[in-house]
């Protein structure tokens, strides 16, 4: 089987994630879309690992997953803190630095 379909799937998922980040208002759903993009990158890593016949890409994907878990923990703590002070989880309301 050729490498191409896996990479095209990865590109499609990345595109869908980017679209979601751009259109959704709820900060947590934006987070889910970021996770989609990270997973698309992971799929590309694993595909290239298979393509080159070594394990480095799989290890990179593993590291990305762990960093993503740390990122989710801190990000959600920030979102919950913003919700506590401003009573809203919408990214449009977090415009404190705008003016």
């Amino acid at each position: 089987m050729s490498t191409e379909p896996f990479l095209v799937l990865s590109a499609l998922l990345f595109t869908i994630g980017a679209f979601g980040v751009l259109i959704r208002r709820n900060a947590i759903v934006v987070f889910m879309c970021v996770e989609l993009m990270l997973n698309a990158a992971n799929l590309a890593f694993v595909t290239f690992a298979r393509h080159h016949g070594n394990l480095d890409g799989q290890i990179a994907a593993f590291f990305v997953m762990v960093v993503a878990a740390a990122e989710v923990v801190v990000g959600l703590a920030i979102i919950v803190t913003i919700f506590r002070t401003r009573r809203s989880a919408s990214v449009d309301d977090a415009s404190l630095l705008k003016y």
Binding site: M1, T3, E4, L7, F14, H51
Partner: peptide, 20 residues
Amino acid sequence: VGLVLVTVVVAGFGGARVSV
């Protein structure tokens, strides 16, 4: 973004095979 990604991927790895 999707168009660029798919184009690059197909141009770079068009005929590549993986043995599954």
